[in-house]
Amino acid sequence: MQSLDTTNVYLEVLALHSEYSACLDAGEFERWPDFFIDQCDYRIQSRENFDAKLPLSIMWLEGKGMMLDRVYGVRETLYHDPYYQRHVVSTPRIVAATDEEIHTETNYIVIRTKRDTFSELFNVGRYIDTIRRTPDGLKFKARTCVFDSEWIRNSIIYPI
C-alpha cells in the first residue's frame, strides 16, 4: 500500500470542515446533504449516551433521503423562531486514514443568535466523523455530533 500524503489529507479535511460550517452558518440547508455520501449516517447524541454506547440520539438520520426530508421540514413545515448559527470548529485530529476513508475527531462550538436577543452559547461538543474519498472530493459517510451537556436549549432545528 502506498503511503498517504498526510499533509494533503489534513488540508482536505480542513477544507471540508470549513465549507460545511460556512454552508450551515449561511443557512444554505439545501446544500447540507451534498456534504454526505448517499448511504450516510448523521446523529446528534448526548455524550452520556455516546459514552454508554446507547443508541438514543436527539436526531438520527440514515441516508440522504432522510436528510432531504429534514431540510424540507425546516423550510416548509416546522414552526420555530428563526435564528442564526455560527460554528467555531477546532483543527481536526486524524485518528486513522487509508486511501478510501479518514476517521477524525473535531471539537465544535455553535453560537445561536436570534434577531432580537444577544448571542448565546447553543451547543458544544465534538464531531466524530468517517469521511469517504469520492470522485467529487471528500464526503461524510458518518457524522456523530456528540454534545457535552445533558441539556439542550429548547430543541435543535438546524443541523449542527
Rank of each mutant, 00 (worst) to 15 (best):
R132E: 15
E62K: 15
Y127C: 01
E76S: 08
D116C: 09
P82G: 04
V95F: 05
K64E: 04
R133F: 06
I131K: 01
D99K: 09
I58E: 13
F122W: 13
F140K: 00
E76I: 00
R70N: 04
S90P: 05
N107I: 06
M66V: 03
T104E: 05
L68Y: 14
Y42D: 03
E48A: 15
M66I: 02
I131N: 02
T98M: 01
M67V: 02
K139M: 07
K139A: 11
I131A: 02
V124T: 12
N107M: 10
D81E: 13
Y84I: 05
V124I: 15
T106L: 02
Q45A: 07
I102M: 01
D41V: 09
T91N: 13
K53F: 14
Y108N: 04
F122S: 04
T104L: 03
Q45S: 06
H87L: 01
D81N: 13
I109S: 11
D136W: 06
E101P: 00
I58N: 09
T91G: 08
H80N: 03
R47Y: 13
T91M: 09
F118I: 07
H103Y: 07
T106V: 09
I102V: 11
S57N: 06
E100C: 04
D38L: 08
Q45T: 15
H103S: 03
Q39D: 15
V89Q: 04
I37F: 11
G63S: 07
T117P: 01
F50N: 05
D69T: 10
F36K: 00
D116Q: 12
P55D: 15
T106W: 06
K53L: 14
F122M: 06
T113A: 12
W60E: 11
R115F: 15
G65T: 14
T106S: 09
C40L: 10
L78H: 08
D69P: 01
D38Y: 14
G73E: 13
N107E: 11
N107V: 03
I94K: 05
R93N: 12
I111S: 06
G63D: 06
P135S: 14
K141Y: 14
V71Y: 05
K53Q: 15
K141W: 08
R75L: 06
G137D: 02
Q85W: 03
V95L: 11
A52M: 10
D99M: 05
